[in-house]
Each structure stands twice: as structure tokens, then as C-alpha cells.
Simulated assay, not measured.
Amino acid sequence: MRLLKLTLGTFFGSGLLPKAPGTWGSLFTLPFIYAAYLIHPVFGIAGFAVIASLISLWSTDVCVGKYGDDPGQFVIDETAGQTMVFIFTAFHYDTTANLILLFAGFIIFRLFDIFKPLGIVRLEKLPGKIGILADDLAAGVYALICLELLKSLLGSLLI
């Protein structure tokens, strides 16, 4: 069970890559988000966000025990946050448009996750596993709002 928690907590090892593990974890999440949408266009992404959040809470203790407090290698929380960005996104048959949407949401999420504006940093200070997850979920919600605004402003260029 410990190995499973470490594997999922590092999102299949993406958090073990050198330099910027949160960025790697978020990037490796994108194909899973797209697959979740293809599996169920209405609830797939939201379901994936819930599952990633639950796995984050479940695997935190083992990863913290191995890597330390709020470890960089633990990226399943980034997976949950990155997934939040796309909850209202409808992908289309145009691969280029889908890639643009995924890339835009990825960049916006990483900016919120790295710089932690608008109270996100306070959520990170919540105790234990809740604080580890909450800041990423908040970054995801802020990025979701920005992506939806961007889609509204740019219209057919992004969809």
C-alpha cells in the first residue's frame, strides 16, 4: 500500500523529475484531463478532480513521511488543481484548438500555483494535508475563472 501511495502521490513518478516537479506533474495531468473528457463529456473532468483530491488526501502522509513537509515530489495535489481549471471546458474535434485550451489552462494554473496571489498563500498554511491540497484547488479555481474569461474574450480563437 505504501508503494501505491508513493506512486500516486508523485503522479506516476512525474514529481520525481528534476527541476520544477509541480510543473511536470501539471503537464503530465493534461492527457488524463482530456481522456476524462472523452470518457464522459459532462462529468469526466469533475470526477477526475474529485478522485485526484481524494487520492491526494489519502497519500499525503506516506509522501510527507518519505520526502518531508509539503514535498515538491508530491504532485497529486497539482493534478487536482490543474484538473479544476477545465471543469467547464468542452473540447472539440479540432486538435489544435484543444491543445491551445490545454496549454492556456496549464500556463494560467502554473502562474497562480507559483505566485499564490489572492489569498492562495494563506490556504497553503492550513494544517497538514488540507493545506497541501487547498492552495492547489484555489489556484485551479482562479485559473478556471481566467480561462473562462479568456475563452469569452477570444471566442472562436480558443473554441
Rank of each mutant, 00 (worst) to 15 (best):
G155N: 10
V64I: 10
K125R: 15
I114Q: 08
L158R: 10
P71V: 05
L153K: 02
K129T: 04
V42N: 10
W24H: 13
I120R: 05
L118N: 04
F12Y: 12
I130P: 02
L6K: 15
P41L: 04
L6G: 05
K129E: 05
V85W: 01
K151R: 15
F109A: 00
A35P: 01
L111S: 00
G44Y: 15
A139D: 05
P71C: 09
L118R: 00
F11A: 09
G44T: 04
L30G: 11
A143N: 00
C63A: 05
I108L: 11
I114L: 06
I130N: 02
D61G: 04
A49E: 04
Y142T: 03
E124P: 05
E78T: 08
T89M: 09
M1V: 14
L149F: 08
W24E: 01
G81N: 09
T89H: 09
T79H: 13
G15F: 06
A52S: 15
H92Q: 13
Y67T: 00
T23Y: 10
G155D: 02
L8I: 11
L8W: 13
K116N: 03
A49M: 15
E148S: 14
I108T: 07
S59P: 05
L137R: 07
L6C: 05
T95N: 13
A90K: 12
V42Q: 13
I145T: 09
T83H: 12
V62W: 01
G9V: 07
G105D: 06
